[in-house]
């Protein structure tokens, strides 16, 4: 039963991440795309945590930490570069 529930939860999370990808494609401004990129990053982090809880492997959580930090650095640098019009 627990296996079933977590599988369904992970499928729902993946579907919601695909819904945010739609906003990345149609977003009118570049900041919409950045925002939804951040949403997808956090959803993938939740997905990794749920998968680690389902299979009881705690080393997978390191991947989640790495993913969060990489998303943070990339969003900060892209937003700063847009604000300064390409000059870093």
């Amino acid at each position: 039963m627990t296996f079933m529930f977590l599988s369904v939860a992970m499928s729902v999370l993946a579907a919601l991440a695909m819904a945010s990808v739609v906003r990345v494609v149609i977003g009118p401004t570049v900041w919409d795309r950045l925002m939804c990129f951040n949403l997808i990053t956090s959803k993938i982090c939740m997905l990794v945590v749920l998968y680690a809880a389902m299979t009881e492997r705690s080393y997978l959580l390191d991947l989640a930490i790495t993913f969060v930090l990489l998303g943070f650095i990339s969003v900060i640098f892209i937003a700063n570069a847009i604000q300064k019009r390409g000059k870093i």
Partner: peptide, 26 residues
């Protein structure tokens, strides 16, 4: 396992306002 999840939670609580702030400021 729970301690590591708490670590992820603390990291996320620290960096999430920074991301929102910098996108809006940009």
């Amino acid at each position: 396992f729970s301690l590591r999840v708490v670590l992820i939670l603390v990291i996320m609580l620290l960096i999430n306002p920074l991301i929102t702030h910098i996108i809006t400021r940009s």
